[in-house]
Design a protein around this nucleic acid. Structure first.
Lengths: 230, 230
DNA sequence: TTCATGCTTCGACGCTAACCGAAGTATGAT
DNA sequence: ATCATACTTCGGTTAGCGTCGAAGCATGAA
């Protein structure tokens, strides 16, 4: 009927919510394992496996095997470009996501998003850091200020080490349950790691959910709460 | 599991073959009636009606009523750009829809991309304009230089009028057949309009393909060709 | 008014594919 | 060897949606 490339096939691959979530997660440029992507998409590993196979056949992702892990990454910059344009059109049309959220209330409260804190606690954390001018929003994205770096140093985080990595220090990650940004990037990961080390929070088994201990919660609000933010 | 613009919803809209055919037909920039689009997609009018309603809700097409006809057109350049990128990814992945016909070859040579020139001729045009420093590439994208503006004025294009519009004057658009950029934006549209007005090129019926007349081709290479570019 | 055309809505059918449980394969650790 | 982890394949169920026939509006022409 018509000549040209089969855009419907590619679009249909992105058109499934689970696959779209996986692709969005891969937009960071990092390679993720199949299991991580399954969590990201909110489906079981066997379902994710099928999706990833189809994405591979469609030329959207590629896989590199390392031991018993399979690291998936976007097939190329053109795929990332395509996804960004999709976001642009979707945003202009005003269609925010209406899909099923984390069913568990605990997930909405606090959970791991790849390697950093998400949920209500994550959103609160970022908003307070911005309120205290530890982080400012620029055109490029989020940026850690000098007072912010000092505060992070006081919390036991080696900011200079983070700056040496290829990974951006601060990155905004839109929180699906709260519909506001939380903090990703190297600093986001370091903050969660530090909180776990301090015993403030622990991961619940078999879940992405996080549970703050009473003392941890108190310490969190003491250091990052709204009370001292003014 | 992030939120943000719902790319799955938009992609799913494009992911149906019938809707993809309609959108591809609308890439010509012309407004088409629902019945024409039904024929283009190979479905009955009542099926097409449902598809068009969903495309409208999704913000991909808009409709203007004229008498008992409803003329559909793409909602904006961003949609055309999205579709072109989809073609690029699909072409790279090797998913050509059918065997390549003579009509396909004409499309690769010169075609309309929304409202500007694409295909080999479009890619050549932009590369020459860059080579002559009429256009320079900056971090923000493409930019028209003073000599470039003068040259466009000499070609009969009112550059100041273009600058007054909200639409960017120069924009790069990735060409799916050539896998290189061609010129979109207000200037790209004005250039194609001018070439049509001058009789250099005409649209082939029922297609996005363009055909240059012999004299038009000579005039094109005379003004925009590589010979004078050094 | 009456008829024709363009398009939409409704209802029903059928097919695709997303999903999970269970089982199977491959790799690494003990 | 034995177990654990990571991932895949298979089977069966279910939900969604693309499709068309028939009928309903709306517009324009005779």
């Amino acid at each position: 009927m018509k000549a040209g490339p089969d855009i419907a096939r590619v679009a249909a691959l992105v058109g499934d919510p689970a696959r779209a979530n996986m692709l969005t997660a891969l937009m960071s440029g990092k390679a993720l394992t199949a299991t991580e992507l399954a969590h990201e998409a909110g489906v079981t590993p066997q379902t994710a496996s099928g999706h990833l196979a189809r994405l591979g056949e469609g030329g959207l992702v590629e896989v590199t095997r390392q031991g018993r892990h399979r690291y998936y990454h976007l097939a190329g910059p053109d795929v990332a470009d395509l996804l960004e344009r999709l976001m642009g059109v979707a945003a202009r049309a005003g269609h925010l996501r209406t899909r099923t959220g984390p069913r568990d209330a605990a997930l909405r409260e606090a959970r791991v998003c790849y390697d950093h804190l998400a949920g209500e606690m994550g959103v609160t954390l970022l908003s307070v850091m911005i309120m205290r001018r530890w982080i400012v929003t620029t055109e490029q994205g989020l940026e850690l200020t000098a007072p912010g770096a000092a505060a992070m140093g006081g919390f036991g985080i080696d900011v200079d080490a983070l700056r040496g990595k290829r990974r951006p220090v601060c990155r905004a990650c839109l929180d699906w349950s709260a519909r506001r940004n939380h903090l990703a990037g190297g600093l986001g990961a370091a903050l969660l790691t530090r909180m776990v080390d301090l015993g403030w929070v622990r991961r619940l088994p078999e879940s992405r959910a996080l549970r703050f201990s009473p003392t941890g919660l108190a310490a969190f609000t003491d250091r990052f709460g709204l009370a001292g933010a003014a």
